[in-house]
């Protein structure tokens, strides 16, 4: 895409179990590294430009896929140089240090 930074993903998920949108929303918003931006109004969603330079992965356009059983649609946006690369690598290092390198 003619976009400098941040990748976007249109995601369709089918679950084994049934779900509620409220539980999806709160599970995503409470998960470390994720943030829900989903207002169902004009502009109530995240775009690549807004995700640039941010550590969080943003989840928008949360809605049920009524054409399949237990189906969900999402729009996921994140700074590809951070979560997809530099930030993730540094967080791996932090985890190693916190756990004394797992005895290595």
């Amino acid at each position: 895409m003619p976009i400098s930074v941040s990748h976007s993903e249109s995601v369709n998920i089918q679950f084994e179990k049934s779900f509620s949108l409220e539980k999806v929303r709160s599970a995503l918003d409470n998960f470390e590294g994720c943030k829900v931006i989903d207002e169902r109004i004009d502009g109530g969603y995240s775009t690549p430009l807004e995700a640039e330079g941010k550590d969080e992965t943003f989840i928008s356009r949360i809605r049920e896929d009524k054409t399949i059983k237990n189906g969900l649609n999402l729009w996921i946006v994140s700074d590809n140089l951070l979560r997809g690369a530099a930030l993730n690598a540094v967080e791996i290092a932090e985890t190693l240090i916190k756990n004394n390198f797992y005895g290595k």
Binding site: M1, P2, I3, S4, V5, S6, H7, S8, E9, S10, V11, N12, I13, Q14, F15, E16, K17, S18, F19, K23, V24, A27, L28, N30, F31, C34, P48, N70, L72, N80, L81
Partner: peptide
């Protein structure tokens, strides 16, 4: 977090990737 709660069976994803 969604897989932990509802167990994902299948994912279909289209990506719109930046040039960086």
């Amino acid at each position: 977090p969604l897989h932990d709660l509802f167990v994902i069976k299948r994912i279909v994803v289209s990506t719109y990737q930046s040039v960086s």
